[in-house]
Every structure is written in structure tokens, then in C-alpha cells.
Computed example of a mutant assay.
Amino acid sequence: MPQPIEVDLPHNLGKDEARRRIANNVHKLEEHIPGGAQVQSGWAGDQLNLDVQAMGQEVAATIDVEDSKVRLKVLLPGILGMFSGVIQSALQKKGGVLLEDHSKG
């Protein structure tokens, strides 16, 4: 049974700017996941759906963009559920990378 994790990342960007930044940064997720991850993503309104494959596991996740927060939801399959605390902590610490603005030189 998948182990769900939810993490809220507060922001003061507004929904449109947060969505733009996430769209610009989602390709960087592969750099933060060990084991040569492959990430596929697609938007459905203000929700980004992610399928992550790493270390022989497939993880489904969503990122819901709201006016003052971004909510990350991750379903950890099988044995990865044992690491839910560590993964949740990492998401809280590094999740803000998705909201960084790299559009200015």
C-alpha cells in the first residue's frame, strides 16, 4: 500500500508567479533525486502531475499551486514507505528550489 506524504511550501508570489517558477524549475528535480531519476510531468490547470522513476521504483506525485502555498503530495510505493520521514524532511528543506526565480540574469 502506498505511503502518502504531504508538504506545504508557503510563498508570497501569487498563484501565477509560483506556477511559472515551478514550470521553469521542474526539470531540475532529476538533479535532487539519487539513482539517476527520470521525471515526466504534465499540467492539469494549477496542478502539476509527476511520475518519477528512480532506483527501480516509480513514484506518483502532484504539486498543487495555490495563492499563498504550494502543496506537494507524494505516494511512496512499497519499501520506500519506510523512508517517508526522511523523504518528507528532504521535501521540506529542498522543495523551495521549485519556487526559485532563475529568469533574471
Rank of each mutant, 00 (worst) to 15 (best):
I79M: 12
G78E: 08
G36C: 13
V70G: 04
A18S: 12
R21K: 10
S68A: 07
Q38T: 15
D8I: 10
A18C: 11
L48V: 05
G36K: 12
G81F: 04
P34Y: 02
A44Y: 11
I87K: 00
L13E: 07
W43T: 08
S103W: 00
V52F: 03
A44P: 05
V52Y: 04
V74G: 07
A44C: 11
D64N: 09
G81W: 01
G14V: 04
E30V: 15
R21D: 03
L80S: 09
G105S: 10
G35V: 06
A23T: 15
V65F: 01
G85D: 01
Q38Y: 12
D16M: 10
Q40I: 14
V97G: 01
N49L: 07
I22G: 00
H32M: 10
I79A: 14
D16E: 15
V26Y: 10
R20S: 05
A90F: 08
N49Y: 09
F83E: 10
G42S: 15
G96A: 04
D51P: 04
D46G: 01
D8T: 13
V86K: 09
G35W: 04
T62G: 03
L13Y: 05
I33K: 06
D67C: 05
K93R: 13
D64A: 09
V65Q: 03
L99E: 00
L29I: 14
S84A: 08
K28V: 10
L91T: 02
V70I: 10
V52C: 06
G95T: 00
I5T: 08
M1F: 07
S41L: 03
N24L: 09
Q92C: 02
G42K: 15
I22Y: 00
A54K: 13
V65W: 00
K15R: 14
M55N: 08
G85E: 02
E100L: 07
R21W: 03
E66I: 02
W43F: 11
G45M: 05
S103P: 01
Q57F: 13
L75K: 06
S103N: 06
D46E: 06
K28Q: 14
S68T: 12
V26S: 06
V97D: 01
I22K: 00
P77Q: 10
D101E: 06
R19K: 15
A37T: 13
M55V: 05
P77I: 13
L72R: 03
L75D: 11
I87C: 01
Q40N: 15
M55I: 05
G36Q: 11
M82D: 07
V70F: 04
S84I: 02
Q3H: 08
E58N: 11
V26C: 11
L50F: 02
A61G: 08
N25Q: 12
L91G: 02
F83P: 06
E31N: 14
E6A: 10
L72N: 00
Q38N: 15
Q53R: 13
L98S: 00
G56C: 09
P2Q: 08
A37Q: 13
V74P: 07
G81V: 04
G36M: 09
K104H: 07
V65R: 01
P34V: 04
S84H: 11
G81Y: 02
H27M: 14
I79H: 08
A60V: 12
K73A: 03
H32D: 12
R71Y: 02
